[in-house]
Design a binder for these strands. Structure first.
Lengths: 156, 156
DNA sequence: TTTAATTCCTATTAAATTACTCGGTATTAA
DNA sequence: TTAATACCGAGTAATTTAATAGGAATTAAA
């Protein structure tokens, strides 16, 4: 029941991008350095975000990535689902229609549990917008003294 | 962000135990057969439930397991946490006090996200009691014709 | 008193997943 | 032309999961 590094690193990367954007594209190498994430691995994470329409890539020198939408319109749920796949606790047809149907659906009792968990997770993450995290980030950084430190080696 | 088979099989096993109990202890071999779970593996799952005080084991011939408390007093959260460990999406000291503290806690923004997810999951599962699932199980089995079929090979 | 049924315990292993690394190609501003 | 960047796919090491296996301890019943 844990998120993988895809979700953890990836959300941090998007917040970093949103915070450090200034009309120009942000190079992944900068995000990788600030966040202490390997560039090669970060590329793979950002590829998922791009595919989901959350960021746009700009190729060539001085290129980088930009948000595809205003931060107010991107939910944490959008970001985490792009990175992790569905946030349901089980692969169950009744919950995620992409899964294969289940023989025992009619007498399955636990599916009610999985549905409640799934809905509560999705409601929670869809209620937080990227802009909320950007605002919070600016606030805590101001308090901490504006030093743009590396966040390497953090556990979450 | 998926439960493991520990949580999935284990919850089914507890519901099976609660449904099929009749003053006498229920042998794991019966639960294993009805639920299509390997006996050896089920033993490991039930050991966790016993350690958490959810079931009691009765040794010897005609032995088996019984609920340690009335089903009304056992929440699905108790069961899943016993089987899976904490249900938080990250290993984070701010959320699970058993984890090691984090250097970047003061400037960490994503921890608010993880906390919201964690709380919503725990609220959801703590709001469902084992007795609710037992009642639901009796209802759907009655509708399906009271045939106590095996639930083997179900995906969740 | 023996036997069979059961919980209880620990070690080992196969499979799957995760978390990367590596090496390249394509594109574009300077 | 060069350097900086996104983009792409293959391979690999480490970790975790999902079991399997085998036996010891306990106890009701024959």
């Amino acid at each position: 029941m844990k998120l993988t590094t895809k979700g953890r690193y990836g959300l941090r990367a998007v917040v970093d991008l949103a915070v450090n954007t200034d009309d120009e594209a942000v190079a992944l190498s900068q995000i990788a350095e600030r966040q202490g994430i390997s560039l090669n691995y970060l590329e793979q994470l950002v590829a998922r975000l791009k595919k989901a329409g959350i960021v746009n890539g700009i190729r060539g020198a001085q290129g980088g990535y930009v948000l595809a939408m205003p931060a107010e319109e991107i939910s944490v749920g959008d970001i985490l689902r792009a990175l992790e796949g569905d946030l349901s606790p089980v692969d169950c047809y009744e919950i995620n229609s992409n899964d294969t149907p289940c023989d025992n659906s009619d007498i399955c009792v636990t599916k009610y549990v999985w549905k409640r968990i799934s809905d509560s997770i999705n409601d929670a993450v869809d209620g937080i917008m990227l802009s909320d995290l950007v605002a919070e980030s600016r606030r805590v950084n101001a308090e901490a003294g504006i030093t743009q430190e590396s966040q390497a080696n953090q556990t979450c």
